[in-house]
């Protein structure tokens, strides 16, 4: 018993109780001070892991993938905060990976996530920690542009019995469909290499390679019960949120 969201009982006020817990309606009716008590819900922890590498600066139609991930994260965090869930945030890049830990309020969450800038590459040395005592839903938002499967391996290592991992592979529409014109010059945001799309065969090969890699991710993550979702940054955020909530409901049922 204690602070929670579901009402359980009233008890008489005792000195030392938090006066914010006084039920004033009861006082009005009875002229006596009563404290409202409710069952403490078990709740799960949301741990948001944002890819802070330079590839997240890829822009399509004026929207960067990093910004999209921020909006999505903030929206999900808002729901979590409203439900009294514990929210944690980590930003990963090789320049400075930061694990912010538990964030106390939504306002502070927004203040934390807003100024995040993407640099360099994924931090191979970062370990995704989650408590084995508390149920945790780890939500990874990344574009999975990795050189040596560092992101994939980090996620696979983080999976254990007491957590669920939800991965969002954020890709722009031009990345998914390779809508660049022939003879366009493309520069890699992380390696700074420049390439020219010579012909349609080159585009076709890119799409085949992308499809193959995404299928591999899905297969490998599915083997460890890790959900892998491809998100087109052209799609609305609310659709993505709905999907996450459905997933969470599923987790709740499993927990119960």
């Amino acid at each position: 018993m204690g602070q929670g969201t579901e009402f359980s009982q009233y008890r008489a006020y005792q000195p030392g109780d938090d006066i914010r817990r006084l039920d004033w309606k009861m006082y009005a009716r009875s002229d006596k001070f009563f404290v409202r008590e409710s069952d403490q819900s078990k709740g799960i922890k949301f741990h948001f892991i944002l890819d802070g590498s330079a590839s997240m600066l890829h822009e399509d139609e004026g929207l960067k993938k990093l910004d999209y991930s921020k909006y999505l994260t903030a929206a999900l965090a808002y729901i979590g905060f409203n439900q009294g869930d514990e929210i944690e945030l980590s930003i990963i890049n090789s320049d400075q990976s930061i694990a912010y830990g538990k964030i106390s309020s939504y306002k502070k969450f927004v203040q934390t996530i807003h100024p995040i800038k993407a640099k360099k590459t994924w931090d191979k040395t970062f370990h995704i920690n989650s408590s084995r005592l508390q149920k945790t839903l780890i939500i990874v938002l990344s574009d999975f542009h990795e050189m040596q499967d560092e992101i994939k391996n980090s996620i696979l290592k983080a999976r254990h019995a007491n957590n669920e991992i939800l991965t969002f592979c954020l890709l722009s529409d031009n990345e998914i469909n390779c809508t660049y014109s022939l003879n366009s010059q493309l520069q890699d945001l992380e390696t700074k290499e420049i390439i020219t799309i010579k012909n349609k065969a080159s585009q076709k090969k890119y799409l085949e390679q992308l499809e193959k890699e995404l299928a591999e991710y899905k297969q490998e993550f599915a083997a460890k019960n890790i959900d892998f979702q491809i998100i087109n940054c052209s799609n609305d955020i609310d659709q993505q949120i709905k999907m996450v909530l459905e997933k969470r409901m599923l987790i709740q049922r499993n927990l119960n």
């Binding site: 890829h58 992380e190 390696t191 890119y206 890699e213």
Partner: peptide
């Protein structure tokens, strides 16, 4: 500027 060119 794109996220990755490794697939080309």
């Amino acid at each position: 500027k794109v996220g990755s060119i490794k697939r080309f």
